[in-house]
Design a protein around this nucleic acid. Structure first.
Lengths: 213, 213
DNA sequence: TCTATTCAGTACCGCTCGATACATAAGTTT
DNA sequence: AAACTTATGTATCGAGCGGTACTGAATAGA
């Protein structure tokens, strides 16, 4: 009951997502956001809570929207296909001509001041959760014999996500899609990168001479 | 002539660098900066100009300080040693226990609002210049027969820098040094990643079926 | 010692930030 | 139509932002 909302909450959230994506959490002001959303500050607070909650809702929409390729990639039949779908998706999503360059999960709040600590932590958790989902998928692949015995699923997940994040940084700097696709293709030429002794079951081979510093 | 400066300008710049490194350009306030530098706002403006110039000077100090491993890496005798030194240096610099996690050149201003556009562009140029220096080094390696004929130095440089940026993002999220060193080692197992036809001299092999977006 | 020149500290500037109080409009329910 | 509930728009809040006059303080040269 009461007066009905005069705007489409999902569409307005999509607009807010684009602003956060382009300017990051701290760089996106309420004036920018509400102007893009086509609503007033009051309506924004009534519908989403505050800036921080608006960001979290935008991140959730990002996950099931532009970043939906991650969930789809995990459904690929083989570990290599999963890795390829992840990197191809990262290249495409970070270089879409109709969206800001880069990845919201990376550039939304990589380093931040006091006021953006919660947003930064939310993105750290977002990346960690994504990485663990990939690791879990690779564990399944290992069980299925889809990966060589002795492979470390956590390591493979870090390998893929590290490349994806690097691709996102490059895209944010204006590197074009074709150049990044070449990088993704190169990184998957030796898949899996190599069988690494799982942590805890032995001493991984490491070159010496590196001190702490 | 006149009253001499009452503080060490280089040491104060080092303190400012750490603040920018940890909180990014937008997240670092003048109160944070001057408190860490141990000087007043007035002294900061007199010595460095303004916040933007302070950031540029801090970035220059970062380049010849914590990021000095890049210049050293370019002096390695072989392309593979260059790549290895770059990734090892990235791992170590982004995970130093006495410095903020991550890379100033990445998290200083990846996405930004209006007021930080110049800082963001400065970092984009910083990354681009670094990448071109690496490309130039790989061109030299190609001339010396240190890389297989047909290798694309620009592509190899993007491959290495993409990994370095990804490592920086992982480090910013708290991933530990050993895990990142594994990623760096894996990425260099197949060096060079593969000989790619230089852009413009032919159609690089690409899998089909990918439309725009 | 006197004067010129530069540095340092206090207090403050205008502005924008995220967030809200309040009055009004637009619906639903009775 | 009256009562109630919720959304919208205006105008503004206190706080913090980057940046700056202005007043002393400290040193160099005459």
């Amino acid at each position: 009951m009461g007066r009905p909302r005069g705007f489409d909450a999902e569409q307005a959230l999509e607009r807010a997502l684009l602003v956060f994506w382009e300017h990051g959490y701290e760089g996106a002001t309420l004036t920018d956001l509400t102007k893009a959303m086509g609503i007033t500050r009051t309506s924004m607070y009534a519908a989403y809570g505050n800036k921080e909650e608006l960001f979290r809702k935008a991140l959730a929409r990002y996950t099931r929207g532009p970043a939906g390729y991650v969930a789809k990639a995990l459904e690929q039949p083989t570990a290599e296909a999963v890795a390829r779908a992840l990197l191809d998706g990262a290249v495409r999503t970070t270089t879409r001509p109709d969206c800001p360059a880069g990845c919201l999960g990376v550039q939304g709040a990589l380093a931040a001041g006091e006021t953006a600590h919660s947003a930064r932590d939310a993105l750290i958790a977002w990346r960690r959760d994504g990485g663990e989902a990939i690791r879990s998928r690779f564990e399944q692949a290992l069980d299925e014999g889809d990966l060589p015995p002795g492979s470390d699923p956590a390591h493979l997940a870090r390998y893929v996500t590290t490349l994806a994040y690097g691709i996102a940084v490059q895209a944010a700097g204006g590197v074009c899609r074709d150049d990044l696709q070449q990088v993704a293709d190169s990184a998957l030429l030796n898949w899996p990168p190599h069988p690494v002794t799982p942590t805890g079951t032995g001493t991984p081979p490491r070159r010496g001479g590196r001190g702490p510093s």
